[in-house]
Computed example of a mutant assay.
Amino acid sequence: METARPASLASPEAVRVTNPGGSSPFVLTCDHASNFLPPEFGTLGLAAEELSRHIAWDPGALPVARRMAEALDAVLVETCISRLVIDCNRPLDAPDLISAISETTAVPGNAGLTEKQRAARIALSWRPFHDAVEQIVDKRLARGAETRLVSIHSFTPVYKGKSRPWHIGIIHDEDRRLASPLIAALKRLAGVTVGVNEPYSPADRVYFTLERHARSRGLACAMIEIRNDEISDEAGQRKWADLLTGIFSDLGLEEDQKEIRQSAIGHPVQPVN
């Protein structure tokens, strides 16, 4: 499993955009890509080993997203600061935007923040991430490029003592244009247990990035959650990235477009070029 980055590898960036001119219709985001804490936050009062846990990031998600982006020639937008500082996949009024307790772990450095401190964190990480996604999407739409948003996440095998049997979950709301064919393709894989709106659903407030940048524009979107023990090493990351790349490549076929159109609810679908 990946571990926290040492200070010598600290990145001054809050957000990183890879392949902004990608030809793929897919724009990938990795909202919890990093466990990096800028030096001014110290460890937020946590022991160093806590920073390698899921409370700080989505372990394994970024290598999968990067491999997919390269193979698909897709844009990738990733966060470079831990969600312990601020969760970029939450609305600004969410109670867990800056968590004083993450899962069951108290985060002392997040307790009792002033409005000024909260505003500084928004400006540091949340705003740059969403500005970057917005600019990418706006530029693509301005030039008439078909655009579908997919966010890549990972989840823990056990959460608050409850085991999670799914190897991968697809999260979606009532717009199933992308989720339906993706779920169907995954369910055809032998030995793979697929969660549909598991282990999370939009009701859990985990769909914010897609709501803000895709649903608001009528763009097809879906959220992918991979159980993090499946992608804890390079072999697992390669396996899932390659499986998903193959499925996403096939979604460009006309027969899959028919399925996307049939599952759309109130949203016109642009034809594939």
Rank of each mutant, 00 (worst) to 15 (best):
residue 1 M to I: 05
residue 2 E to Q: 09
residue 2 E to Y: 00
residue 7 A to I: 02
residue 9 L to P: 00
residue 9 L to Y: 07
residue 16 R to V: 15
residue 16 R to Q: 15
residue 17 V to G: 12
residue 21 G to Y: 00
residue 23 S to Y: 00
residue 24 S to D: 13
residue 26 F to E: 12
residue 28 L to S: 13
residue 30 C to H: 02
residue 31 D to T: 15
residue 31 D to C: 14
residue 32 H to T: 11
residue 39 P to D: 14
residue 42 G to T: 11
residue 44 L to C: 11
residue 46 L to T: 06
residue 48 A to I: 10
residue 55 I to R: 01
residue 59 P to S: 09
residue 62 L to V: 03
residue 63 P to R: 04
residue 64 V to P: 01
residue 66 R to F: 01
residue 67 R to M: 08
residue 68 M to Q: 09
residue 70 E to R: 06
residue 71 A to Y: 05
residue 72 L to A: 12
residue 74 A to G: 13
residue 75 V to R: 13
residue 77 V to N: 13
residue 79 T to L: 15
residue 85 V to C: 11
residue 89 N to D: 13
residue 89 N to G: 10
residue 92 L to Y: 09
residue 98 I to N: 01
residue 109 G to N: 03
residue 110 N to L: 01
residue 121 R to N: 07
residue 122 I to W: 02
residue 124 L to T: 03
residue 125 S to H: 14
residue 131 D to Y: 01
residue 132 A to Q: 08
residue 132 A to T: 14
residue 134 E to I: 00
residue 141 L to T: 01
residue 142 A to C: 00
residue 144 G to R: 10
residue 150 V to D: 02
residue 151 S to L: 03
residue 155 F to E: 03
residue 160 K to N: 13
residue 161 G to E: 03
residue 162 K to M: 05
residue 164 R to S: 06
residue 164 R to C: 09
residue 172 H to Q: 12
residue 173 D to E: 14
residue 175 D to M: 11
residue 176 R to T: 14
residue 179 A to R: 04
residue 181 P to S: 13
residue 182 L to N: 08
residue 185 A to S: 15
residue 190 A to H: 14
residue 193 T to L: 05
residue 193 T to F: 03
residue 194 V to A: 09
residue 195 G to E: 02
residue 197 N to Y: 08
residue 199 P to C: 06
residue 209 T to W: 11
residue 214 A to I: 08
residue 215 R to A: 14
residue 216 S to F: 05
residue 217 R to Q: 11
residue 219 L to S: 12
residue 228 N to R: 04
residue 229 D to M: 05
residue 230 E to A: 09
residue 230 E to Y: 07
residue 231 I to L: 10
residue 233 D to W: 08
residue 234 E to H: 05
residue 235 A to T: 11
residue 237 Q to C: 06
residue 240 W to I: 01
residue 243 L to W: 05
residue 244 L to S: 01
residue 245 T to C: 04
residue 253 L to D: 09
residue 254 E to V: 12
residue 254 E to S: 08
residue 260 I to F: 03
residue 261 R to K: 12
residue 262 Q to L: 12
residue 263 S to K: 07
residue 267 H to S: 08
residue 269 V to W: 06
residue 270 Q to S: 04
residue 270 Q to K: 14
residue 272 V to G: 04
